[in-house]
Design a protein around this nucleic acid. Structure first.
Length: 877
RNA sequence: GGGCGCUUAGCUCAGUUGGUUUAGAGCAUCUGCCUUACAAGCAGGGGGUCGACAGUUCGAAUCUGCCAGUGCCCACCA
């Protein structure tokens, strides 16, 4: 048997089996009579590469899908990628810039060609990487959010929502990303604490030789000031009522207005009002009918309208204007100040509030069924704590800004007539028809219509993902859709609960009238072992593919899963992968042992083997039931730990040690067959977590036809468990450990057979196992043990190994005294309870009875120990 | 400023409706072993007054209150 190395080599088998599975079509699914189990992948960015977050997320999905498949369900995992409008466009723009090409030099068509080239070049890398992980996706279904079916779905949905009156175009204050030069939704703005400054600026009061002082964090916006605002109830600023002030440096005269919005306590109680560049100022401008001056270009530089600093970047202006204000004597003071600044989630630059015409989706009614479904538990979140987060967001949802000033994405299907009116239609031909109806001008042609330049938010396509993957928008009655939808489980990070999860639920109810999935498993964030987020800058983010290279895919999968309860961040450490790799090795070596056995039909099954088979059958079934229950609760890490311990402790350390024959001797047929059967089941149980090694060994332990695979083998349903054997084995293990301890402390060789005395009664059905593992000649039931014996207690029973003259009386005494002390302490706690009249009177009878039993047991144990101590003392001389 | 969650062994976490030993697991650590499946291993051991305080109860890691620490989400205070 020693042609097999003692170390398992994942590299030798992983690619082989992945190819085997793929070639035999084991990943693919078609509708049939079985119960469906469907997972859709959270589509990674088409040009992205696999990172640790993906590794965790995809591993979890694969575990769920493989388990479902082995439960006999028709399991389908649909892969795909997302066009990631902003991120991808930014990358393309950057690459073009490296070649000296600016986006503005290109037509939309030329730019899109570059973008598609980029997509074809880098697109799908991540899908190849997923194969290394072992992902059992149905690759024939690979989708892209901008492929034909998904694009038509998006456009159709836009038109439908527009026709329902839920989509509208309007001029609003939106979040503007000056780097990407596009509007963003509220969810794409991340507020972060920034250490900045609070500037106190002097505004000269017209007609007086005094100044009003305004505190602001953004002095560069003063060119857009069109008023100063005070609170009418502010006693310290009463002198400003009805006055005008001069904007510093600019020299423009602006009125002082009054509004209770102003916080009297903040700064000086004077607020500068810049309606174009602040949401609240915009509100004030509307209310008080103020002039608006837009001082910024789309890229965050100062516009002609600013008059000063034209063409400079806003951040540079902030630095320069501070100097200029000081020089002009118009800066009262500057303080350090910490406030929250909205940053673009994608480009990480500060958001600029900007007034612009955008498309919006009304959310108020759409969210209602989606909220209810989660509150009612029709859709379950794991862990459930995220229901709170979800409810919070869903109860006050603002309209969704869905237009982006980008080219890479789905172009908005709105067409403007020459007179500025708009029609929304699925294509240009339909638009012409509608335009003619609208205008009454039948001479209108496509050439007269101008399509909206904007494209849609990426999430406006991914919110349809569970539907559009089955072409459900275009074919709501399709066979695929009705079979696979609603999908079963969704696995994703809580960071996109609003971006994606909530919106998919909304879309599900709005477009299909049904939930998109039944369960959402929220993963945690993968951090380093110090709890820091993984980042390129810190260099603490390992490349999953390198880890796979080093530890094997199974090892990495297991390492991540051991540390990843749903919703908990996982602190990644290479030690986790080592544990995974070590477990692989353990399995491998157990296999080597079993494979090396020579079988003989002429040997009878020994009693200890017969008992071991019976016991392990019970242990295995108990674990099967536990794992099944844990899967139902999405406690995958606990499920894995249960299997880990079953394999390592129960199977390898105990079961195999009982049944393995002495070196060079054959094993009986019955035991060997039972062992192979156990091994088979263990591999199946483990396969969802560690697909490669389990396939490799499963193929080895029996003859398999071509195309057979553990992937489609069934995990057995748990059978009834003989708890008596489980309990008996627990005692047996303790007895064996007790004897081993005696050997160790007395320096008795492992193979030297001993006798074991049991004082009083002992009827363990597994005593043959004890005899075998503890290497005993016999177990003697005795009234009184030898005075010179090393003894130990298990429960209330005393065991003793007679040692004759070789006993170390003092050491033995010390041990017994320690046991006695413990037993007395324990008795004291029990008797304290029983001595409490109110306990005896009020506690349930069963609880009191249990305490009485404990008391009796403790008393008998103490008596036994005292006797043993007395006997030893007698033997001392 | 609101809302939610967490705090149990050195680390990561279990602990179901309060009562199956004086609270468990994995990893780490310590001791002894290269015992023909496996040193990526085997056999043992140590380690926690369950964040603090108060309360309810015959009985609290578990329920209540308050406090401290920590994390997340939301919010227009310049």
């Amino acid at each position: 048997m020693n042609e097999l190395a003692s170390v398992y080599d994942p590299k030798a088998v992983e690619d082989k089996w992945y190819k085997y599975w793929e070639e035999h079509g084991l990943f693919s699914s078609k509708p049939d009579g079985r119960e469906p189990y469907t997972v859709v992948i959270p589509p990674p960015n088409v040009t992205g590469v696999l990172h640790m977050g993906h590794m965790l997320n995809e591993t979890i999905q694969d575990i769920l899908v493989r388990r479902a498949r082995m439960e006999g369900k028709n399991a389908l995992w649909v892969p795909g990628t997302d066009h990631a409008s902003i991120a991808t466009e930014a990358k393309v723009v950057k690459r073009l810039a490296e070649r000296g090409i600016h986006k503005t030099d290109l037509t939309r068509e030329e730019f899109l060609k570059h973008a598609w080239d980029w997509t074809h070049e880098y697109g799908g890398i991540i899908l190849k990487q997923l194969r290394k992980v072992g992902a059992s996706c149905d690759w024939s279904r690979t989708a892209f959010t901008m492929d034909d079916i998904r694009s038509r779905s998006v456009i159709k949905v836009f038109v439908d929502l527009y026709n329902k009156g839920l989509i509208y175009r309007g001029v609003r204050m939106v979040n503007w990303d000056p780097a990407a030069r596009t509007a963003l939704s509220d969810e794409e703005v991340i507020y972060t604490e920034q250490h900045g400054k609070l500037y106190y600026l002097r505004y000269k009061i017209v007609g007086e030789d005094r100044y009003a002082v305004v505190a602001t964090t953004r002095p560069e916006t003063i060119m857009g000031d069109t008023a100063m605002c005070i609170n009418p109830n502010d006693p310290k600023n009463q002198h400003l009522r009805g006055k005008h002030v001069i904007v510093p440096l600019v020299g423009r005269e602006i009125p002082v207005i009054e509004d209770e919005y102003v916080d009297i306590e903040f700064g000086t109680g004077c607020l500068k009002v810049t309606p174009c560049h602040d949401v609240n100022d915009y509100m004030l401008g509307q209310k008080h009918n103020l002039e608006s001056i837009n001082i910024f270009n789309d890229d965050g530089t100062l516009s002609e309208a600013a008059g000063l600093y034209v063409g400079m970047d806003r951040m540079d202006v902030r630095v320069q204007i501070e100097k200029d204000l000081i020089a002009a004597g118009l800066m009262e003071k500057v303080e350090d100040y910490t406030n929250k600044v909205g940053m673009s989630e994608r480009t990480k630059v500060p958001i600029e509030p900007k007034l612009s015409a955008q498309w919006f989706l009304k959310m108020t009614d759409l969210v209602k069924p989606a909220l209810q479904a989660v509150l009612d538990g029709e859709i379950q979140f794991h862990p459930a704590k995220f229901v709170n987060t979800y409810r919070h967001w869903m109860t006050d949802t603002k309209d969704w800004c869905i237009s982006r000033q980008l080219w890479w994405g789905h172009r908005i299907p709105a067409y403007y007539l020459p007179d500025g009116k708009v029609v929304v239609a699925e294509d240009i031909d339909a638009a012409v028809v509608k335009a003619r109806e609208l205008s009454g001008n039948n001479a209108l042609t496509a050439a007269d219509l101008r399509q909206d330049e904007d494209c849609l938010d990426t999430w406006f396509s991914s919110w349809l993902w569970p539907i559009s993957l089955f072409d459900g928008i275009n074919h709501p009655e399709g066979e695929e859709l009705s079979y696979y939808y609603p999908t079963s489980d969704l696995v994703t990070g809580p960071d996109i609960i609003f971006f994606w999860v909530a919106r998919m639920i909304i879309a599900g109810y709005e477009f299909m009238g049904k939930k998109p999935f039944s369960n959402v498993y929220f993963t945690g964030i993968v951090r380093d072992k110090l709890g820091r987020k993984m980042s390129k800058q810190l260099g603490n983010s390992p490349d999953p593919l390198e880890l796979i290279e080093h530890y094997g895919a199974d090892g990495v999968r297991m390492g991540l899963m051991l540390a990843a309860p749903a919703g908990n961040d996982i602190l990644y450490d290479d030690a986790l992968c080592e544990q995974g790799r070590n477990f692989n090795n353990k399995i491998w070596n157990s296999f080597r042992l079993v494979k090396g056995w020579e079988v003989s039909d002429s040997i009878e099954q020994p009693e200890h083997s017969r008992l071991a088979v019976a016991w392990f059958t019970a242990a295995l079934n108990k674990a099967l039931a536990e794992v099944k229950d844990l899967f139902a609760k999405f406690r995958l890490n606990d499920a894995l730990m249960t299997i880990y311990r079953l394999f390592w402790e129960d199977f390898s350390a105990w079961y195999l040690e009982v049944v393995k024959p002495a070196y060079g001797t054959p094993i009986d047929r019955a035991t060997r067959d039972a062992t192979i059967g156990f091994f088979d089941t263990l591999l199946r149980l483990l396969h969802p977590f560690m697909p490669f090694i389990t396939e490799e060994l499963w193929q080895h332990i029996a003859e398999r036809a071509d195309g057979e695979s553990i992937m489609v083998a069934r995990i057995p349903e748990p059978a009834a468990v003989d708890e008596r054997l489980i309990a008996a084995m627990a005692v047996a293990k303790d007895v064996v450990a007790g004897v081993r301890n005696v050997r160790k402390t007395k320096n008795i060789a492992p193979r030297e057979a001993l006798r074991l005395q049991v004082v009083g009664e002992f009827d363990n059905p597994l005593s043959a196992i004890i005899t075998k593992l503890a290497v005993l000649d016999a177990i003697d039931i005795v009234e009184t043990k030898d005075a010179t014996a090393a003894s130990f207690m298990i429960g209330t029973t005393e065991f003793a190994v007679p040692l004759g003259d070789s006993i170390d009386v003092e050491a033995e005494l010390a041990k017994l005294e320690a046991d006695l002390k413990y037993a007395r302490g324990f008795l004291a706690t029990v008797e304290k309870k029983l001595g409490n009249e109110r306990f005896v009177a009020n506690a349930p009878e069963a609880v009191v009875a249990l305490e009485r039993k404990k008391q009796a047991d403790a008393l008998s144990k103490i008596a036994t120990l005292e006797q043993a101590i007395a006997a030893l003392k007698g033997a001392r001389f």
